[in-house]
């Protein structure tokens, strides 16, 4: 029983990591109907930006809330700028091309960032600075709930609520939904689609920035290919939850994290990914649009 509870906690904690990345995928897809495969590599760049910044101003050995917040802000800024540049140079020129061209360009940008990262940052892993001290919040028997796990989960949920608020309660959110529904009509109503889309990339990329610092805090090893697997899983989580749906991304990520955890716990660690992805295939057979995908009202 204790082990089961421990597995549950591990699964939710892993799921919250996926959720942070999945939100970025779902956000861009919701507005643009394009899968931004470079998202997980923007996340990687965010981690390195925080790493070099911490070393540059010498706070890598100074754990505390101020360090964490500083690095999150730095990483968000760098990721937003990178997101803007990618959108401007790679995606905007293809705005009226077939969807497939944009998709392939996105894969190209992703590979470009990964391998440029290997040249610029080096292929060997770097050790992310200790931004916070991890401690046990409470424990029952040998089951422990740790501060990092709670932090990541809370930040993930807050990001989800903030996005919901942004999309449904603000003027720019309404503009974003308008562009998503029909960019042409939206521009007739005085909305500048280019600016809205650029803003979408800023929001999506800064989520990657937040994620990168939190993941770096929890798993202090960063390398240029760190975005590959986590990005793939987060993307699948977003699809599972119903891509384009903010709440769905978080739900999908939790299911993803928990199913991985439970497969290792009760089936086989060797086939973890095969079985975890197998579960997703089964869910998608019965819910092709994802778990929350059919509620088009909620679609952003």
């Amino acid at each position: 029983m204790q082990d089961f509870v421990q597995h549950l906690i591990n699964g939710v904690s892993l799921g919250s990591i996926y959720a942070l990345i999945a939100l970025g995928y779902t956000m861009v897809y919701g507005i643009l109907k394009m899968i931004n495969f470079a998202h997980s590599d923007v996340y990687m760049v965010g981690a390195f930006a925080a790493y070099y910044f911490a070393r540059w101003i010498g706070i890598e050995n100074d754990p505390g809330l101020s360090t964490l917040l500083t690095l999150i802000v730095v990483s968000m800024i760098c990721c937003s700028l990178l997101g803007l540049v990618i959108e401007r140079l790679a995606y905007r020129p293809l705005r009226n091309s077939p969807k497939l061209n944009v998709l392939i360009t996105a894969i190209g940008v992703s590979l470009f960032l990964e391998y440029s990262g290997q040249v610029v940052f080096g292929a060997d892993p770097k050790v992310f600075p200790e931004v916070m001290k991890d401690f046990v919040i409470f424990s029952i028997g040998n089951v422990e709930v740790r501060s990092f796990d709670v932090t990541v989960l809370v930040v993930g949920l807050l990001a989800m609520l903030a996005l919901q608020f942004l999309l449904f309660k603000t003027k720019i959110g309404r503009a974003m939904r308008a562009v998503s529904a029909n960019p042409m009509v939206a521009s007739l109503m005085g909305v500048n689609p280019d600016r809205i889309i650029a803003f979408t990339f800023v929001v999506g990329s800064s989520l990657a920035g937040v994620g990168s610092v939190l993941v770096g805090m929890k798993y202090p090893k960063i390398d240029p290919l760190m975005g590959m697997m986590i990005g793939l899983k987060a993307f699948v989580a977003a699809v599972l939850g119903g891509i384009g749906n903010v709440g769905g991304a978080v739900l999908g990520a939790m299911i993803m994290g928990l199913s991985e955890e439970m497969v290792v716990a009760y089936l086989s660690s060797t086939y973890r990914d095969a079985l975890a992805f197998g579960i997703l295939i089964v869910i998608l057979i019965f819910k092709p649009a994802g778990l929350l995908g059919k509620y088009s009202v909620e679609k952003v």
Binding site: N10, M228, E261, A265
Partner: peptide
């Protein structure tokens, strides 16, 4: 087992 590139090993370790 795990796979190179993984960052979370708590499932295996709890087991």
């Amino acid at each position: 087992s795990y796979q190179a590139g993984d960052i979370d090993f708590k499932a295996q370790l709890t087991q």
